[in-house]
Write a protein that binds this DNA or RNA. Structure first.
Length: 756
DNA sequence: ACCGTATTCAGCGCG
DNA sequence: TGAATACGGT
């Protein structure tokens, strides 16, 4: 174990062994960035550092979990598990639970998700009779999020003439006021939004130096992964905590910064040398992931960016296969080509589905791909889309839990006060909201503590309200005595949410009930799981109550759900979601102007460069082979649009791209194609043209195909039909091709020529 | 309370 | 285009 540094190359080992002082590690894609961070922590522990004094900040919970597991393997669980490792949000939410009271937040504060924030903004708009079409809630939330990420309070915001003028010019002069109201309402609900977790941590450290000192001494070593994706609020927190000892290590790759649109600031990397003049810089430039072809092609592409730290990523890996470019006439054909190529590669190389990933720029592109894969019978899994935790029924049940933990949580209360229906209608709720505003209190408090204020409601209604409050209180009493699962289960049964779902339409509700069960299962698992040391409650007892579960669930996303073990499927996801992952065979689809690069990115060079970095990230996910596709027409927003090939395609040096000639080993004539006028001819693969129907291969009608017939396939050559099964669209044939072996072909798509 | 229709969203999305 | 939710009419 003392020998574990031998797993590292020279550059990596130097970066690991330099433990003291400010360190910046700039690592190319696939150069073992995470590996270095992991080993660095293991090495610190090995050198006798106290695990409780190490804080490691990652981009996702998943990354934190994986890193922790790896460290425990290297150095043993006893030390490894005590390292403070997590996302900015989860780590600082924990700190705010302990010390937020300085800012007036009780430890049971709720964390509002984006949905809650938008609901709240909508409500504020309707109260102020402002047009939500002018003040679009998601626009407002963006502005507010931006302000908070740059540590602008509502007061700072309103005092900044430039911002106020900009809002005026945009026809939204009340934005600052809405920010102020929104914050006040969050506070009243004892809630923080995601950005508040960072903003309030900064306020805590700014206004309470004792608290800051506590954490400065608490954390002797700070490590930050994906530093290129941190925003100003995060940067500032790190700077504050690290100020005492400056044992700060940041790891990043400016070429992989793809979240500037969300406020991430590459300047944080560039500023590092200003903040810590005596810093040490380590470069990791050897790529272990990809073939030479992929590494070099990606290098050539990224060189087009002006804003970048010069580095030379290289690899000792094999040359590998050239990049294939598939050209399709339409988006559906593109998907079919991709599915066919995957099928072909799977068959010819005998590869499992999980070796493949399809990456796209926008989620909307997943649908046609999904259909094509299904037709080919290739198993797939789509990442992204509607998250489990944002399903209606899951949010409903969680809202009950939230309310039990924090009865002032207004969004939670409004969600469930009349669900399942208990005769508290729209009018009543509106009156309650008005009353709560005039009394400057929460609705729950109003009903529970101030019955006289309800005078204008009729008796029956007041009774129903009080029954609701009584029920919630009966749950609150059990918070401490019951385990998370016991109480969650009790609440679920008491409120009758499953019955309410059963009474809704049958098709949807079955699924919804399953989701409720899945949520309860997750809570059971939580209740039974051995808690991590950092999950101990204030009193040192295991933190297994519903409150503890809810603390972590607010910061979870689908990406954190463990992948099913051994699942064999093609992964479909956006390029953003693919960051940090790797796959042997990667398909990057939709390489078209206005899609990738996105039409919204064409305004400024900085935005275009971010798109290019995105393309760089996509290319460098691949270990063995990249296939790129684009379509000439595509349905977007309901109408057909013509698409030019992406400029990024031209940025790849043609020497890395496979030309059709190389594939053409069959006896068929090369399809005649004329290059686009004024453009370099776009290379296409031979495989592509076979199914695209622009050649002289005459497919036969396979209606009467029978066992024993001799057939010809454009790609697989000549063969004999072994079996015919199914009917209609599902009719498929098993054909034994000479020199290739047996293939199953769905006759709907396979273009076969019957010879005899 | 309920149902059908209108509207909205579709650039990526950590927490 | 298509889904998911919001709205509005009865």
């Amino acid at each position: 174990m003392t020998d574990f540094l031998s797993h590292l190359n020279d550059a990596q080992r130097k970066a690991v062994e330099h433990t003291e002082g400010p360190v910046m590690i700039i690592a190319g894609a696939g150069a073992g960035k995470t590996r270095v961070l992991t080993y660095r922590i293991a090495y610190l522990l090995h050198q006798g550092a106290d695990p409780f004094r190490i804080m490691a900040l990652t981009f996702t919970n998943k990354a934190a979990r994986e890193m922790k597991e790896r460290i425990m393997q290297l150095i043993g669980p006893a030390k490894g598990r005590n390292v403070w490792m997590g996302t900015f949000h989860s780590i600082f939410a924990r700190i705010l639970r302990v010390d937020g009271h300085h800012l007036g937040y009780p430890e049971n504060f709720t964390i509002y998700d984006t949905d809650d924030s938008k609901q709240l903004l909508k409500k504020i708009l309707s109260e102020l009779q402002l047009d939500p079409k002018v003040y679009h809630p998601s626009y407002l939330l963006n502005r507010i999020s931006n302000a908070k990420s740059n540590l602008y309070s509502p007061e700072n915001y309103l005092a900044d003439q430039e911002i106020v003028n900009a809002d005026h010019a945009a026809g939204k002069p009340l934005t600052g006021e809405l920010y102020r109201t929104y914050n006040a309402r969050l506070k009243r609900a004892n809630a923080m939004d995601f950005d508040d977790l960072l903003f309030n941590t900064n306020m805590l450290f700014r206004d309470f130096p004792d608290v800051l000192h506590k954490y400065q001494h608490r954390f002797g070593y700070i490590l930050v992964d994906e530093y290129q994706d941190t925003n100003f609020a995060q940067y500032h927190i790190i700077k504050q905590i690290a100020a005492a000892h400056e044992n700060l290590t940041v790891v990043g790759d400016d070429a992989q910064s793809i979240y500037a649109f969300r406020g991430a600031n590459i300047q944080n990397i560039l500023n590092f040398k200003k903040d810590y003049p005596d810093y040490h810089l380590f470069r990791l430039e050897q790529n272990y992931r990809s073939t030479k072809t992929i590494v070099n092609a990606a290098n050539v592409v990224i060189e087009n960016n002006k804003d970048q730290i010069k580095k030379k990523v290289w690899t000792e890996n094999e040359e590998g296969e050239l990049i294939t470019v598939l050209k399709a006439t339409s988006d559906t054909e593109e998907s079919t080509l991709v599915a066919n190529s995957i099928f072909g590669l799977k068959m010819s190389k005998q590869l499992p589905s999980k070796d493949f990933a399809i990456l796209y720029r926008t989620n909307a592109q997943s649908r046609t791909l999904e259909e094509a894969l299904r037709r080919q019978g290739i198993p797939y899994k789509i990442y992204g889309g509607v998250s489990f935790y944002s399903r209606r029924e899951v949010k409903d049940l969680l809202a009950y839990f939230r309310l039990v933990i924090n009865p002032n949580d207004e969004e939670a209360l409004l969600r469930v006060i009349n669900y399942p229906a208990r005769g508290i209608g729209k009018t009543t709720i509106e009156k309650l909201q008005v009353l709560a505003n005039t009394h400057k209190t929460s609705i729950f408090n109003l009903i529970a503590e101030n019955p006289t204020a309800l005078a204008e409601l009729n008796r029956g209604t007041v009774n129903k309200l009080q029954e609701f409050v009584t029920m919630i209180r009966s749950f609150i009493v059990q918070l401490e005595s019951k385990s998370a699962f016991e109480l969650a289960n009790h609440i679920t049964k008491s409120v009758g949410i499953v019955n309410a779902l059963k009474e809704e339409d049958a098709i949807e509700s079955v699924n919804r009930i399953e989701n409720i069960e899945e949520l309860l299962n997750a809570i059971m698992e939580f209740s039974e799981r051995e808690p991590e040391p950092d999950e101990l409650g204030e009193d040192g007892r295991p933190a297994r109550s519903l409150g503890h579960f809810m603390q972590q669930v607010a910061l979870l996303t689908d990406a954190d759900k463990k992948d099913e073990e051994g699942g064999d499927y093609v992964s479909l996801m956006t390029i953003h979601a693919a960051k940090g992952l790797e796959f042997p065979y990667v398909f990057i689809v939709g390489l078209e102007e206005n899609l990738f690069p996105s039409i919204q990115s064409l305004g400024t060079r900085a935005e275009l460069e971010e798109e290019r970095r995105l393309f760089y990230v996509a290319l460098t996910r691949a270990m063995k082979k990249v296939t790129i596709s684009h379509a000439e027409t595509r349905y977007r927003w309901g109408s057909l649009s013509l698409s030019e090939p992406s400029r990024f395609l031209e940025e790849i040096d043609p020497v890395f791209i496979e030309t059709p000639r190389k594939l053409a080993k069959s006896s068929f004539a090369e399809p005649a194609k004329s290059p686009l006028p004024g453009r370099r001819p776009m290379p296409t693969s031979g495989a592509e043209s076979q199914t695209s129907g622009r050649d002289d291969f005459q497919a036969s009608d396979t209606e009467n195909l029978e066992t024993g017939m001799q057939v010809e396939h454009q790609k697989f050559g000549f063969g004999q039909v072994v079996k015919v099964e199914g009917s209609g669209a599902n009719k498929k044939a098993t054909v034994h091709f000479n020199g290739i072996g047996q293939k199953q072909l769905l006759l709907k798509f396979a273009r076969l020529r019957i010879i005899q």
